[in-house]
Simulated assay, not measured.
Amino acid sequence: MSAIRYLLILPLAAVVAYITLVGVVYFSQRALLYPGAGATAAPEPTSWGETVHVKTPDGEMLQGLYSQGDSDKPCVLLFFGNGDRAGNYGFLAQALATRRIGLLAISYRGYPGSTGSPSERGLLTDGLAAFDWLSARAGSRIVVLGRSLGTGVAVNTAGNRPAMGVILVSPYLSVLLVAQARYPFLPVKALLKDPFRSDLKIAKVRQPKLFLHGRLDDSIPLSSGQALYEIAAEPKRMVIYDGAGHNDIWNDSMIGEVIRFVEALQGNRP
């Protein structure tokens, strides 16, 4: 092959390779965004609390784990991260139970024990359905807690339901901006199906808010969480953990912050 012909073919090959990459990313994006989901997800074993089921308005059935607290105490509604499991939060349920505070952790559609397939619209529907289910049992004493991807579900839920307060662990301005920073060589805005624009929804969240973030987080940069905090309305508070990253942020200190925040909400309630 002559050098001239090689130079002509090389750019074409690069273009074809790039288009192929874009196609692969587009069609596999939900598998990347929701790694904890699976088409044949088996029910999750009950590692704490009671197994419950929540029916969504669009016909899906969600599995959750529920630890009931005292009737005069708040209950925490947990939305976990994209690769997480409800069963992983026994440590939080136990800590809350020592203060007689309940916990409901819901498994999103497509995740273990729940029907359907995940999408932003689906997860936001799941969040509202879980709140309504819990409200029928715990009344208006609900504190919404979101972690990582689940912070987008928490922000939407609190903006559309009368939660007492909101706790956001490793939050983001949007999945869109996080993806753009991670994949600057791709036309992310044109490709992304589920942008989770918390930046456009946080203004509706008027309840007290607690932001918790690790300074060493390399999955959702602290700068993204701080930016969301800056545009959020008062009352709000942010705690930054200097030695923590994304997956090692839970410790006794942070659990203590969560409990103090929840109990302060109860104390301020008329």
Score class of each variant (00 low, 15 high):
A42M: 14
S107A: 12
D132Q: 09
Y229H: 15
E60L: 04
R99Y: 10
N247I: 10
L96F: 02
V155C: 11
Y89K: 07
K209R: 13
G87Y: 04
R161E: 06
A158D: 09
I240R: 12
K189T: 14
R5H: 06
M1D: 08
V52Y: 04
R109M: 04
A227V: 03
V16W: 11
A130W: 03
L186M: 14
F79M: 10
I259P: 09
V188A: 06
F27A: 07
D248S: 06
V54I: 15
L216V: 02
L173I: 04
T125V: 15
Y183E: 00
H213Y: 11
R197K: 08
S219T: 15
G36M: 07
V54G: 05
V205M: 01
V155Q: 06
R30V: 01
Q94Y: 06
W250I: 15
R197S: 05
A264G: 11
A181Y: 02
S117F: 12
T98H: 14
P162M: 09
A130I: 07
K236C: 08
F91Q: 14
L62G: 11
I106L: 15
L62H: 13
V262G: 11
Y66P: 01
A203E: 15
L8N: 02
W133D: 04
Y6R: 13
P162I: 10
Q29R: 03
V239S: 11
V188W: 06
Y111V: 05
A97N: 11
L265P: 08
F211E: 02
K209W: 10
V239H: 14
D248P: 05
Q68T: 08
G102Y: 07
L103F: 08
L77T: 05
P35D: 06
V76S: 06
N82T: 09
E234C: 00
E50N: 15
G38W: 04
F91D: 14
M254I: 15
D218Q: 15
K236W: 09
L33V: 11
K73V: 01
F261C: 02
V143S: 03
M1R: 04
E50V: 14
S28Y: 00
E44A: 07
R121F: 00
V153N: 08
V175K: 02
I202E: 06
L104T: 02
L177W: 03
F196S: 03
C75S: 14
N82F: 00
D248W: 07
P270F: 10
G267Y: 01
G23A: 09
T20A: 15
N268D: 14
R30I: 00
P112S: 02
K189M: 11
A138K: 09
Y229G: 10
G152W: 09
A179L: 08
V76N: 05
I220E: 08
V15R: 05
A203G: 13
G116A: 04
E234R: 09
L104R: 02
V175Q: 08
S114P: 00
G243L: 08
G81A: 12
T125H: 02
D84G: 13
V24E: 01
P35A: 09
A93K: 01
A138R: 14
L123F: 12
G64L: 04
G113V: 03
N247K: 05
L96Y: 01
L62T: 12
E257F: 01
A93I: 02
W48D: 07
I259G: 08
R5K: 13
L10W: 10
P43A: 13
Q68H: 07
P184A: 06
P162G: 07
R182T: 13
A227C: 04
L21I: 09
F211W: 03
